[in-house]
Design a protein around this nucleic acid. Sequence first.
DNA 1: CCTTAGTTGGACTCCAGAGTCCATCATGCC
DNA 2: GGCATGATGGACTCTGGAGTCCAACTAAGG
Lengths: 229, 229
Amino acid sequence: MSLLLGEPRRSGSLAAVVDPPVRSVGTRLTARGAATRERIVLAAAELMAAKGVAATTLDDVRVASGTSKSQLYHHFAAKEELVHEVITHQAGVVLERQNQLLRGVNSFAGLRRWRDAVLQRNVLRSGAYGCDIGTLAAELSDTDEAAREALAGHFATWEQLLADAFRRMRDNGTLRPDTDPATLSVAVMAAVQGGYLLAQTAHNAEPMRVALDMALAHVKTFEASTTGL
Amino acid sequence: MSLLLGEPRRSGSLAAVVDPPVRSVGTRLTARGAATRERIVLAAAELMAAKGVAATTLDDVRVASGTSKSQLYHHFAAKEELVHEVITHQAGVVLERQNQLLRGVNSFAGLRRWRDAVLQRNVLRSGAYGCDIGTLAAELSDTDEAAREALAGHFATWEQLLADAFRRMRDNGTLRPDTDPATLSVAVMAAVQGGYLLAQTAHNAEPMRVALDMALAHVKTFEASTTGL
DNA sequence: CCTTAGTTGGACTCCAGAGTCCATCATGCC
DNA sequence: GGCATGATGGACTCTGGAGTCCAACTAAGG
Protein backbone atom coordinates (compact mmCIF):
# COMPACT_ATOMS: atom_id res chain seq x y z
CA MET A 1 0.00 0.00 0.00
CA SER A 2 1.11 3.54 -0.61
CA LEU A 3 0.31 4.69 2.87
CA LEU A 4 3.73 4.44 4.33
CA LEU A 5 4.08 8.18 4.71
CA GLY A 6 4.91 7.58 8.31
CA GLU A 7 8.64 7.41 7.74
CA PRO A 8 10.79 8.96 10.43
CA ARG A 9 11.67 11.87 8.15
CA ARG A 10 14.91 12.53 9.94
CA SER A 11 16.59 13.59 6.80
CA GLY A 12 15.01 16.96 6.24
CA SER A 13 16.32 16.96 2.74
CA LEU A 14 13.39 14.84 1.76
CA ALA A 15 11.02 17.40 3.17
CA ALA A 16 12.77 20.07 1.15
CA VAL A 17 12.31 18.08 -2.01
CA VAL A 18 8.68 17.37 -1.25
CA ASP A 19 8.16 21.08 -0.78
CA PRO A 20 7.62 22.62 -4.23
CA PRO A 21 6.01 26.09 -3.72
CA VAL A 22 8.73 28.62 -3.01
CA ARG A 23 12.49 28.48 -2.58
CA SER A 24 14.35 25.19 -2.65
CA VAL A 25 14.68 25.66 -6.39
CA GLY A 26 18.36 25.64 -7.17
CA THR A 27 18.99 25.76 -3.44
CA ARG A 28 20.82 22.80 -2.02
CA LEU A 29 20.93 22.50 1.70
CA THR A 30 24.21 21.96 3.43
CA ALA A 31 24.25 19.76 6.51
CA ARG A 32 24.37 22.89 8.61
CA GLY A 33 21.40 24.43 6.85
CA ALA A 34 19.39 21.26 7.11
CA ALA A 35 20.05 21.10 10.84
CA THR A 36 18.85 24.65 11.29
CA ARG A 37 15.76 23.97 9.26
CA GLU A 38 15.05 20.92 11.36
CA ARG A 39 15.46 22.87 14.59
CA ILE A 40 13.05 25.50 13.36
CA VAL A 41 10.39 22.98 12.43
CA LEU A 42 10.78 21.10 15.70
CA ALA A 43 10.50 24.25 17.79
CA ALA A 44 7.53 25.48 15.79
CA ALA A 45 5.80 22.13 16.06
CA GLU A 46 6.17 22.08 19.80
CA LEU A 47 4.97 25.63 20.25
CA MET A 48 2.04 25.24 17.91
CA ALA A 49 0.96 22.03 19.57
CA ALA A 50 1.01 23.73 22.94
CA LYS A 51 -0.41 27.16 22.14
CA GLY A 52 -2.03 26.81 18.77
CA VAL A 53 -0.86 28.08 15.41
CA ALA A 54 -2.22 31.60 15.63
CA ALA A 55 -0.86 32.13 19.11
CA THR A 56 2.63 31.12 18.05
CA THR A 57 4.65 34.04 16.70
CA LEU A 58 7.71 33.75 14.55
CA ASP A 59 9.59 35.44 17.34
CA ASP A 60 8.58 32.62 19.64
CA VAL A 61 9.90 30.18 17.09
CA ARG A 62 13.07 32.19 16.61
CA VAL A 63 13.83 32.19 20.32
CA ALA A 64 12.86 28.58 20.92
CA SER A 65 14.97 27.38 18.02
CA GLY A 66 17.88 29.68 18.74
CA THR A 67 17.89 31.10 15.23
CA SER A 68 17.49 34.49 13.63
CA LYS A 69 14.81 36.08 11.51
CA SER A 70 16.86 35.70 8.37
CA GLN A 71 17.14 31.98 8.96
CA LEU A 72 13.40 31.61 9.25
CA TYR A 73 12.90 33.36 5.95
CA HIS A 74 15.86 31.66 4.41
CA HIS A 75 14.13 28.34 4.87
CA PHE A 76 10.47 29.27 4.63
CA ALA A 77 8.89 31.82 2.37
CA ALA A 78 6.23 32.71 4.92
CA LYS A 79 4.70 31.57 8.17
CA GLU A 80 2.10 29.61 6.22
CA GLU A 81 4.83 27.51 4.66
CA LEU A 82 6.31 26.79 8.07
CA VAL A 83 2.86 25.75 9.26
CA HIS A 84 2.57 23.31 6.39
CA GLU A 85 5.95 21.91 7.27
CA VAL A 86 4.85 21.53 10.87
CA ILE A 87 1.78 19.62 9.71
CA THR A 88 3.98 17.26 7.72
CA HIS A 89 6.28 16.81 10.67
CA GLN A 90 3.56 16.17 13.23
CA ALA A 91 1.81 13.79 10.90
CA GLY A 92 5.07 11.94 10.44
CA VAL A 93 5.57 11.58 14.17
CA VAL A 94 2.00 10.59 14.94
CA LEU A 95 1.63 8.21 12.02
CA GLU A 96 4.95 6.59 12.68
CA ARG A 97 3.97 5.98 16.28
CA GLN A 98 0.59 4.63 15.23
CA ASN A 99 2.28 2.48 12.66
CA GLN A 100 4.49 0.97 15.32
CA LEU A 101 1.51 0.37 17.56
CA LEU A 102 -0.84 -0.99 14.93
CA ARG A 103 1.22 -2.80 12.36
CA GLY A 104 1.29 -6.10 14.19
CA VAL A 105 -2.24 -5.96 15.51
CA ASN A 106 -4.39 -8.86 14.40
CA SER A 107 -6.35 -9.75 17.53
CA PHE A 108 -8.45 -8.18 20.24
CA ALA A 109 -5.53 -8.48 22.61
CA GLY A 110 -3.40 -6.45 20.22
CA LEU A 111 -6.14 -3.91 19.86
CA ARG A 112 -6.32 -3.57 23.61
CA ARG A 113 -2.58 -2.95 23.75
CA TRP A 114 -3.03 -0.18 21.20
CA ARG A 115 -5.86 1.27 23.29
CA ASP A 116 -3.71 1.16 26.41
CA ALA A 117 -0.83 2.92 24.71
CA VAL A 118 -3.02 5.72 23.36
CA LEU A 119 -4.77 6.12 26.67
CA GLN A 120 -1.57 6.13 28.67
CA ARG A 121 -0.12 9.01 26.71
CA ASN A 122 -3.30 10.93 27.25
CA VAL A 123 -3.34 10.19 30.98
CA LEU A 124 0.25 11.39 31.30
CA ARG A 125 -0.73 14.88 30.25
CA SER A 126 -4.16 14.76 31.88
CA GLY A 127 -5.73 15.03 28.48
CA ALA A 128 -4.17 18.42 27.81
CA TYR A 129 -3.01 19.50 24.33
CA GLY A 130 -5.13 16.93 22.53
CA CYS A 131 -4.10 15.17 19.35
CA ASP A 132 -1.24 16.83 17.51
CA ILE A 133 -3.01 16.33 14.21
CA GLY A 134 -6.51 16.89 15.48
CA THR A 135 -5.86 20.29 17.02
CA LEU A 136 -4.19 21.45 13.83
CA ALA A 137 -7.18 20.21 11.86
CA ALA A 138 -9.64 22.00 14.09
CA GLU A 139 -7.76 25.28 13.91
CA LEU A 140 -6.83 25.28 10.25
CA SER A 141 -9.59 23.46 8.40
CA ASP A 142 -11.69 26.56 7.88
CA THR A 143 -8.92 29.01 7.04
CA ASP A 144 -6.20 27.16 5.15
CA GLU A 145 -7.47 24.94 2.38
CA ALA A 146 -4.08 23.40 1.63
CA ALA A 147 -3.62 22.55 5.29
CA ARG A 148 -7.10 21.06 5.43
CA GLU A 149 -6.42 18.79 2.50
CA ALA A 150 -3.11 17.66 3.89
CA LEU A 151 -4.63 16.93 7.27
CA ALA A 152 -7.53 15.07 5.69
CA GLY A 153 -4.95 12.94 3.93
CA HIS A 154 -3.12 12.25 7.18
CA PHE A 155 -6.35 11.25 8.86
CA ALA A 156 -6.99 8.92 5.97
CA THR A 157 -3.55 7.37 6.36
CA TRP A 158 -4.13 6.86 10.03
CA GLU A 159 -7.50 5.27 9.31
CA GLN A 160 -5.80 3.02 6.83
CA LEU A 161 -3.47 1.74 9.55
CA LEU A 162 -6.52 0.90 11.64
CA ALA A 163 -8.33 -0.58 8.67
CA ASP A 164 -5.37 -2.81 7.92
CA ALA A 165 -5.50 -4.18 11.44
CA PHE A 166 -9.22 -4.83 11.12
CA ARG A 167 -8.71 -6.47 7.74
CA ARG A 168 -6.12 -8.79 9.24
CA MET A 169 -8.52 -9.62 12.05
CA ARG A 170 -11.23 -10.32 9.52
CA ASP A 171 -9.00 -12.43 7.34
CA ASN A 172 -7.78 -14.54 10.23
CA GLY A 173 -11.31 -15.18 11.37
CA THR A 174 -11.35 -12.92 14.41
CA LEU A 175 -13.89 -10.61 12.85
CA ARG A 176 -16.88 -11.66 10.77
CA PRO A 177 -16.33 -11.92 7.00
CA ASP A 178 -18.86 -9.16 6.32
CA THR A 179 -16.93 -6.64 8.45
CA ASP A 180 -16.01 -3.46 6.57
CA PRO A 181 -12.56 -2.43 7.81
CA ALA A 182 -12.76 1.03 6.23
CA THR A 183 -16.02 2.01 7.89
CA LEU A 184 -14.93 0.53 11.18
CA SER A 185 -11.72 2.51 11.09
CA VAL A 186 -13.60 5.77 10.55
CA ALA A 187 -15.78 5.00 13.55
CA VAL A 188 -12.78 4.26 15.75
CA MET A 189 -11.00 7.39 14.54
CA ALA A 190 -14.05 9.46 15.43
CA ALA A 191 -14.01 8.00 18.92
CA VAL A 192 -10.30 8.70 19.29
CA GLN A 193 -10.58 12.30 18.10
CA GLY A 194 -13.69 12.94 20.13
CA GLY A 195 -11.93 11.48 23.15
CA TYR A 196 -8.99 13.77 22.57
CA LEU A 197 -11.16 16.86 22.34
CA LEU A 198 -13.25 16.12 25.42
CA ALA A 199 -10.16 15.17 27.43
CA GLN A 200 -8.39 18.32 26.29
CA THR A 201 -11.32 20.50 27.30
CA ALA A 202 -11.85 18.75 30.60
CA HIS A 203 -8.14 18.45 31.37
CA ASN A 204 -8.89 14.90 32.27
CA ALA A 205 -8.22 11.73 30.34
CA GLU A 206 -11.37 9.99 31.49
CA PRO A 207 -13.41 10.85 28.38
CA MET A 208 -10.64 9.34 26.30
CA ARG A 209 -10.88 6.11 28.26
CA VAL A 210 -14.63 6.00 27.78
CA ALA A 211 -14.35 6.78 24.07
CA LEU A 212 -11.71 4.11 23.48
CA ASP A 213 -13.76 1.58 25.41
CA MET A 214 -16.74 2.33 23.23
CA ALA A 215 -14.59 1.95 20.13
CA LEU A 216 -13.24 -1.41 21.20
CA ALA A 217 -16.67 -2.61 22.28
CA HIS A 218 -17.93 -1.55 18.88
CA VAL A 219 -15.25 -3.58 17.11
CA LYS A 220 -16.10 -6.46 19.39
CA THR A 221 -19.66 -6.50 18.02
CA PHE A 222 -18.12 -7.60 14.73
CA GLU A 223 -16.44 -10.56 16.37
CA ALA A 224 -16.92 -13.82 14.54
CA SER A 225 -19.05 -16.15 16.63
CA THR A 226 -16.80 -18.80 18.13
CA THR A 227 -19.71 -21.15 18.71
CA GLY A 228 -20.19 -23.25 15.63
CA LEU A 229 -23.16 -21.48 13.96
CA MET B 1 -31.65 19.06 37.83
CA SER B 2 -29.78 22.31 37.58
CA LEU B 3 -28.70 21.75 34.03
CA LEU B 4 -31.33 23.80 32.29
CA LEU B 5 -28.84 26.39 31.16
CA GLY B 6 -30.11 25.86 27.65
CA GLU B 7 -32.73 28.59 27.89
CA PRO B 8 -33.34 30.64 24.76
CA ARG B 9 -31.45 33.64 26.19
CA ARG B 10 -33.15 35.98 23.82
CA SER B 11 -33.26 38.75 26.35
CA GLY B 12 -29.63 39.75 26.39
CA SER B 13 -30.23 41.52 29.67
CA LEU B 14 -29.85 38.21 31.38
CA ALA B 15 -26.50 37.70 29.75
CA ALA B 16 -25.46 41.11 30.99
CA VAL B 17 -26.41 40.22 34.52
CA VAL B 18 -24.64 36.88 34.33
CA ASP B 19 -21.53 38.71 33.22
CA PRO B 20 -19.75 39.98 36.34
CA PRO B 21 -16.11 40.77 35.33
CA VAL B 22 -15.95 44.29 33.95
CA ARG B 23 -18.43 47.03 33.22
CA SER B 24 -22.14 46.49 33.73
CA VAL B 25 -21.64 47.74 37.27
CA GLY B 26 -23.93 50.68 37.71
CA THR B 27 -24.50 50.56 33.98
CA ARG B 28 -28.03 49.77 33.01
CA LEU B 29 -28.64 48.93 29.40
CA THR B 30 -31.37 50.70 27.54
CA ALA B 31 -33.32 48.73 24.96
CA ARG B 32 -31.22 50.38 22.29
CA GLY B 33 -27.96 49.46 23.97
CA ALA B 34 -29.07 45.90 24.54
CA ALA B 35 -29.98 45.56 20.88
CA THR B 36 -26.55 46.78 19.82
CA ARG B 37 -24.85 44.43 22.21
CA GLU B 38 -26.91 41.57 20.86
CA ARG B 39 -26.00 42.46 17.28
CA ILE B 40 -22.32 42.50 18.15
CA VAL B 41 -22.41 39.11 19.83
CA LEU B 42 -24.39 37.58 16.99
CA ALA B 43 -22.05 38.91 14.34
CA ALA B 44 -18.98 37.84 16.30
CA ALA B 45 -20.42 34.39 16.90
CA GLU B 46 -21.06 33.88 13.22
CA LEU B 47 -17.64 35.11 12.15
CA MET B 48 -15.79 33.13 14.79
CA ALA B 49 -17.69 29.98 13.94
CA ALA B 50 -16.76 30.39 10.29
CA LYS B 51 -13.17 31.62 10.52
CA GLY B 52 -12.08 30.87 14.03
CA VAL B 53 -11.54 33.23 16.93
CA ALA B 54 -8.01 34.36 16.11
CA ALA B 55 -8.84 35.00 12.48
CA THR B 56 -11.77 37.21 13.39
CA THR B 57 -10.75 40.83 13.89
CA LEU B 58 -12.77 43.39 15.78
CA ASP B 59 -12.97 45.29 12.53
CA ASP B 60 -14.67 42.29 10.96
CA VAL B 61 -17.11 42.30 13.85
CA ARG B 62 -17.62 46.02 13.59
CA VAL B 63 -18.48 45.86 9.91
CA ALA B 64 -20.64 42.74 10.17
CA SER B 65 -22.62 44.17 13.05
CA GLY B 66 -22.85 47.67 11.60
CA THR B 67 -21.44 49.27 14.71
CA SER B 68 -18.46 51.41 15.62
CA LYS B 69 -15.32 50.84 17.59
CA SER B 70 -16.64 52.76 20.56
CA GLN B 71 -19.69 50.55 20.72
CA LEU B 72 -17.56 47.45 20.87
CA TYR B 73 -15.57 48.81 23.77
CA HIS B 74 -18.64 50.30 25.36
CA HIS B 75 -20.08 46.82 25.75
CA PHE B 76 -16.96 44.70 26.12
CA ALA B 77 -13.77 45.54 27.95
CA ALA B 78 -11.62 43.57 25.53
CA LYS B 79 -11.81 41.07 22.74
CA GLU B 80 -11.43 38.28 25.28
CA GLU B 81 -14.62 39.33 26.99
CA LEU B 82 -16.45 39.31 23.69
CA VAL B 83 -15.12 35.83 23.04
CA HIS B 84 -16.49 34.66 26.36
CA GLU B 85 -19.84 36.17 25.49
CA VAL B 86 -19.75 34.37 22.17
CA ILE B 87 -19.09 31.10 23.97
CA THR B 88 -22.10 31.69 26.20
CA HIS B 89 -24.21 32.54 23.20
CA GLN B 90 -23.19 29.57 21.08
CA ALA B 91 -23.62 27.25 24.01
CA GLY B 92 -27.10 28.64 24.54
CA VAL B 93 -28.04 28.04 20.92
CA VAL B 94 -26.55 24.57 20.70
CA LEU B 95 -27.81 23.39 24.07
CA GLU B 96 -31.27 24.76 23.45
CA ARG B 97 -31.42 22.90 20.15
CA GLN B 98 -30.15 19.72 21.75
CA ASN B 99 -32.63 20.18 24.55
CA GLN B 100 -35.46 20.38 22.05
CA LEU B 101 -34.19 17.30 20.26
CA LEU B 102 -33.45 15.21 23.32
CA ARG B 103 -35.91 16.16 26.01
CA GLY B 104 -38.62 13.80 24.86
CA VAL B 105 -36.36 10.94 23.87
CA ASN B 106 -37.04 7.74 25.75
CA SER B 107 -36.73 5.08 23.07
CA PHE B 108 -34.44 3.91 20.30
CA ALA B 109 -36.79 5.44 17.77
CA GLY B 110 -36.41 8.78 19.50
CA LEU B 111 -32.67 8.39 19.59
CA ARG B 112 -32.66 7.72 15.87
CA ARG B 113 -34.63 10.89 15.28
CA TRP B 114 -32.01 12.79 17.25
CA ARG B 115 -29.28 11.14 15.19
CA ASP B 116 -31.05 12.06 11.96
CA ALA B 117 -31.41 15.69 13.01
CA VAL B 118 -27.75 16.06 13.95
CA LEU B 119 -26.61 14.32 10.80
CA GLN B 120 -28.89 16.31 8.53
CA ARG B 121 -27.46 19.61 9.75
CA ASN B 122 -23.99 18.28 9.11
CA VAL B 123 -24.86 17.05 5.64
CA LEU B 124 -26.33 20.43 4.74
CA ARG B 125 -22.96 22.10 5.14
CA SER B 126 -20.99 19.08 3.91
CA GLY B 127 -19.43 18.76 7.31
CA ALA B 128 -17.83 22.19 7.14
CA TYR B 129 -17.43 24.43 10.19
CA GLY B 130 -17.83 21.60 12.67
CA CYS B 131 -19.53 21.93 16.03
CA ASP B 132 -19.97 25.50 17.22
CA ILE B 133 -18.89 24.53 20.72
CA GLY B 134 -16.30 21.97 19.69
CA THR B 135 -14.32 24.27 17.43
CA LEU B 136 -14.21 26.90 20.14
CA ALA B 137 -13.03 24.28 22.60
CA ALA B 138 -10.27 23.08 20.30
CA GLU B 139 -9.02 26.59 19.62
CA LEU B 140 -9.27 28.04 23.11
CA SER B 141 -8.66 25.18 25.53
CA ASP B 142 -4.92 25.66 25.58
CA THR B 143 -4.78 29.44 25.65
CA ASP B 144 -7.77 30.71 27.62
CA GLU B 145 -8.36 28.94 30.89
CA ALA B 146 -11.65 30.68 31.62
CA ALA B 147 -12.93 29.74 28.19
CA ARG B 148 -11.82 26.17 28.68
CA GLU B 149 -13.68 25.86 31.93
CA ALA B 150 -16.82 27.38 30.50
CA LEU B 151 -16.72 25.08 27.51
CA ALA B 152 -16.09 22.05 29.70
CA GLY B 153 -19.21 23.03 31.60
CA HIS B 154 -21.22 23.33 28.41
CA PHE B 155 -20.05 19.91 27.27
CA ALA B 156 -21.11 18.57 30.64
CA THR B 157 -24.55 20.12 30.25
CA TRP B 158 -24.92 18.62 26.81
CA GLU B 159 -23.87 15.23 28.16
CA GLN B 160 -26.43 15.61 30.89
CA LEU B 161 -29.15 16.02 28.27
CA LEU B 162 -28.03 12.77 26.69
CA ALA B 163 -27.67 11.08 30.05
CA ASP B 164 -31.22 12.08 30.95
CA ALA B 165 -32.49 10.41 27.82
CA PHE B 166 -30.55 7.25 28.61
CA ARG B 167 -31.80 7.31 32.16
CA ARG B 168 -35.38 7.52 30.92
CA MET B 169 -34.71 4.62 28.59
CA ARG B 170 -33.24 2.65 31.43
CA ASP B 171 -36.07 3.45 33.79
CA ASN B 172 -38.73 2.47 31.29
CA GLY B 173 -37.05 -0.83 30.62
CA THR B 174 -35.60 -0.06 27.21
CA LEU B 175 -32.05 -0.23 28.51
CA ARG B 176 -30.71 -2.70 31.03
CA PRO B 177 -30.90 -1.70 34.70
CA ASP B 178 -27.13 -1.74 35.05
CA THR B 179 -26.67 0.86 32.29
CA ASP B 180 -24.69 3.91 33.41
CA PRO B 181 -26.25 6.91 31.65
CA ALA B 182 -23.37 9.25 32.51
CA THR B 183 -20.67 7.06 30.99
CA LEU B 184 -22.81 6.29 28.00
CA SER B 185 -23.39 9.98 27.38
CA VAL B 186 -19.65 10.69 27.41
CA ALA B 187 -19.09 7.96 24.85
CA VAL B 188 -21.81 9.31 22.59
CA MET B 189 -20.48 12.85 22.95
CA ALA B 190 -17.02 11.66 21.95
CA ALA B 191 -18.49 10.08 18.84
CA VAL B 192 -20.38 13.24 18.00
CA GLN B 193 -17.38 15.51 18.46
CA GLY B 194 -15.08 13.15 16.62
CA GLY B 195 -17.59 12.96 13.82
CA TYR B 196 -17.73 16.74 13.64
CA LEU B 197 -13.96 17.05 13.44
CA LEU B 198 -13.46 14.39 10.79
CA ALA B 199 -16.35 15.72 8.74
CA GLN B 200 -15.01 19.25 9.03
CA THR B 201 -11.58 18.19 7.89
CA ALA B 202 -12.86 16.01 5.06
CA HIS B 203 -15.55 18.49 4.04
CA ASN B 204 -17.84 15.52 3.95
CA ALA B 205 -20.50 14.44 6.41
CA GLU B 206 -19.88 10.75 5.95
CA PRO B 207 -17.61 10.37 9.00
CA MET B 208 -20.36 11.94 11.07
CA ARG B 209 -22.82 9.36 9.82
CA VAL B 210 -20.43 6.55 10.68
CA ALA B 211 -19.68 8.01 14.10
CA LEU B 212 -23.34 8.45 14.97
CA ASP B 213 -24.11 4.94 13.80
CA MET B 214 -21.41 3.59 16.07
CA ALA B 215 -22.78 5.61 18.95
CA LEU B 216 -26.30 4.31 18.45
CA ALA B 217 -25.10 0.77 17.98
CA HIS B 218 -23.15 1.15 21.19
CA VAL B 219 -26.26 2.28 23.07
CA LYS B 220 -28.10 -0.61 21.52
CA THR B 221 -25.70 -3.03 23.17
CA PHE B 222 -27.22 -1.91 26.47
CA GLU B 223 -30.70 -2.83 25.31
CA ALA B 224 -32.68 -4.85 27.78
CA SER B 225 -33.28 -8.31 26.42
CA THR B 226 -36.89 -8.54 25.29
CA THR B 227 -36.92 -12.31 25.49
CA GLY B 228 -37.96 -13.39 28.97
CA LEU B 229 -34.58 -14.36 30.45
C1' DC C 1 -37.23 71.69 28.94
C1' DC C 2 -33.21 70.47 31.21
C1' DT C 3 -30.30 67.30 33.43
C1' DT C 4 -28.12 63.08 33.65
C1' DA C 5 -26.74 58.88 31.93
C1' DG C 6 -26.37 55.83 28.26
C1' DT C 7 -25.09 55.58 23.23
C1' DT C 8 -22.61 56.45 19.12
C1' DG C 9 -19.13 57.88 15.20
C1' DG C 10 -14.85 57.76 13.95
C1' DA C 11 -10.32 59.60 14.14
C1' DC C 12 -6.31 58.53 16.66
C1' DT C 13 -2.45 56.01 19.16
C1' DC C 14 0.33 52.25 19.82
C1' DC C 15 2.54 48.05 19.29
C1' DA C 16 3.22 43.34 18.20
C1' DG C 17 4.38 40.60 14.77
C1' DA C 18 5.16 39.60 9.73
C1' DG C 19 8.33 40.30 6.40
C1' DT C 20 12.86 42.85 4.19
C1' DC C 21 17.68 43.80 3.68
C1' DC C 22 22.43 43.62 3.65
C1' DA C 23 26.78 43.00 5.52
C1' DT C 24 29.39 39.23 7.26
C1' DC C 25 30.68 34.60 8.07
C1' DA C 26 31.10 29.57 6.77
C1' DT C 27 31.65 26.01 3.57
C1' DG C 28 32.05 23.21 -0.46
C1' DC C 29 34.45 22.87 -4.71
C1' DC C 30 37.89 23.47 -8.33
C1' DG D 1 43.66 29.19 -1.39
C1' DG D 2 40.24 31.54 -3.49
C1' DC D 3 35.61 31.88 -5.63
C1' DA D 4 30.75 30.93 -5.48
C1' DT D 5 27.08 29.92 -2.90
C1' DG D 6 24.73 28.94 1.27
C1' DA D 7 24.06 30.41 6.24
C1' DT D 8 23.66 33.81 9.66
C1' DG D 9 22.87 38.12 12.68
C1' DG D 10 20.17 41.52 13.55
C1' DA D 11 18.54 46.03 12.58
C1' DC D 12 14.92 47.85 9.96
C1' DT D 13 10.23 48.69 7.74
C1' DC D 14 5.48 48.31 7.47
C1' DT D 15 0.95 47.11 8.47
C1' DG D 16 -2.95 45.17 10.61
C1' DG D 17 -5.41 45.10 14.42
C1' DA D 18 -6.22 46.09 19.48
C1' DG D 19 -7.44 49.56 22.30
C1' DT D 20 -8.23 55.05 23.48
C1' DC D 21 -10.53 59.33 23.32
C1' DC D 22 -13.83 62.81 22.95
C1' DA D 23 -17.28 65.35 20.98
C1' DA D 24 -21.93 64.78 19.60
C1' DC D 25 -26.25 62.56 19.96
C1' DT D 26 -30.33 60.26 22.15
C1' DA D 27 -33.48 59.21 25.59
C1' DA D 28 -35.53 58.80 30.15
C1' DG D 29 -37.19 61.31 34.12
C1' DG D 30 -38.22 65.06 37.05
